[in-house]
Design a protein around this nucleic acid. Sequence first.
DNA 1: CCATTATTTAACCAAATGATTAATTAACTG
DNA 2: CAGTTAATTAATCATTTGGTTAAATAATGG
Lengths: 111, 111
Amino acid sequence: MTDRLSTAFAALADPTRRAILARLALGEASVTELAEPFEMSLPAISKHLKVLEKAGMIAQSREKQWRPRRLEPGPLKEAADWLEHYRRFWEASFDRLETYLQDLQSKGGTS
Amino acid sequence: MTDRLSTAFAALADPTRRAILARLALGEASVTELAEPFEMSLPAISKHLKVLEKAGMIAQSREKQWRPRRLEPGPLKEAADWLEHYRRFWEASFDRLETYLQDLQSKGGTS
DNA sequence: CCATTATTTAACCAAATGATTAATTAACTG
DNA sequence: CAGTTAATTAATCATTTGGTTAAATAATGG
């Protein structure tokens, strides 16, 4: 693997990590705060944070004995940019669905 | 794991699979055609296709002895929608960068 | 039916992932 | 400095992942 985009998508492929990012979208938080919602050991959370950090999605600072994390959105943007290339496909699907529903309306009558 | 979004991001976390999706964005292709650019065995490609299929990103049809795949954009859209929530963060980062560069311009002079 | 082409399945393997518990390190606080 | 709180590291383990080669299956065409 090793390439940046793969690392980013891999980091996002876990609900715990996505929840951590969602929490950090509300603002900085310590490891203990981040761990609180999960039925999971601290070391497990620590590892998830390491994955997010290696992906460049979070950064650490220092506040007394805490090491609060904050969101670093760069890799999220790169992932979003990659997906953006496929937009026309899902918009096309929607168009087909829309056409289909319009057809139902005009042809189907009151049955 | 098991949830749809995690499966989608995991499917995207591999450059071979992303390249396959990119190829399918140009139109349907058989397994042999899809495998052609890679220095990798057919079974390896077959497995990657299975991952993409389980993620709901591709579908199969039948054309004589070929089983061409086509893009199914639903899960790509779901992934893009998830990332969209973080847009304000990278746009904010860009704003800060812009401000920083403007500061360099105005303060830095000719040094 | 036999040969060929297309693709999958099976069996196997090394490395990575996601979790655990126990031990360690770091920093503040009285 | 002793105790407490915060977080990481180490050791371990089961499962998943991404690849291989060899064998099997599917469909077409002569």
